[in-house]
Design a protein around this nucleic acid. Structure first.
Lengths: 151, 151
DNA sequence: CCTTCTCCGACCACCGCGGTAGGATTTGGC
DNA sequence: GCCAAATCCTACCGCGGTGGTCGGAGAAGG
């Protein structure tokens, strides 16, 4: 397992919010109920999403959470990063501010395994960035509609 | 971090063996020494590689390990799988014997997040399968000796 | 027969994960 | 103004995996 339930649950919460976008704030209670997830635990996860400014909270009665931006403008890479931290396949591969990938074990000679892990990292980030919340929120609409599918 | 040091160290060991292919068996002791990794820990990892029939062991004095197959025929997906177990981004996504991806939480309605995780899994497995050990073993040896390696 | 090396199982400290608990605070509705 | 509903915050906890270590039992070479 590469991602913990933080990512799993958090993505579900985001998908839930995306589906109900425009219906006003949704409380974590109903999400926990519908999705069958522990409320107290979700509270922790959603804090990460809030600090990353992916959701907005509305306190008090009839409060809850809404997406901070349109679903189509929130990439899954942002969501996963907010929940799990920096996306890196292994410890020694990290990205500097410019996005260049560096290998902590490198130095004497070029790390032969760096190529592998940077490619893996790249492919994960790419697929995560190519998808937005809107892609998850499309209802189970029968795709017998032969219209364009974004490509 | 998505992969543990099992994958990191194990891949290094495999890369080391691939580079020295044909020089006879290499003991874990020298690998641990050269790579700066704990020998006793490597012993555990290499057992996984042996059980997966990726390396062959030669016991006794002057023994050690060799690749079980040519480096070009060992995909990194096999190596990582042997070390870390089945490659799945999250718990609820697993592959049945036919390679179809299934979501454990599915049932009532189609899991909206399944699409995400299956794509992530696919991209990881794809990049891991496209690379072989030979790709790690043949990096430019242009270290201090730029004129060597004529061919 | 002694050294070298693989093999195997037991053991261990630490830490993140998944989850719980309890309360403080803010807000809407009456 | 009060209560209920909700977020918010901090602390705690059991468990299992990670990342080792140790000690020894085999196997092969010189």
């Amino acid at each position: 397992m590469m991602f913990s339930t933080k990512a799993e649950y958090g993505v579900r919460v985001m998908a839930h919010l995306a589906k109900a976008n425009g219906d006003g704030p949704i409380s974590l209670g109903v999400i926990a109920d519908v999705e069958g997830l522990p409320l107290a635990y979700l509270e922790h996860l959603v804090q990460r999403l809030r600090r990353a400014e992916l959701v907005e909270s509305h306190r008090g009665a009839h409060g809850g959470y809404t997406l901070a931006r349109p679903a189509g403008e929130i990439t899954m890479a942002e969501v996963v990063r907010a929940l799990e931290g920096e996306i890196a396949p292994i410890e020694c591969i990290s990205a500097d501010p410019d996005g260049r990938l560096v290998c902590a074990r490198e130095g004497h000679d070029p790390c032969p395994t760096k190529l592998l892990w940077t490619r893996v990292q790249g492919s994960i980030v790419r697929t995560l960035t190519e998808m937005t919340l809107a892609d998850l929120a499309r209802p189970a609409r029968t795709r017998k509609n032969p219209e364009k599918t974004a490509a």
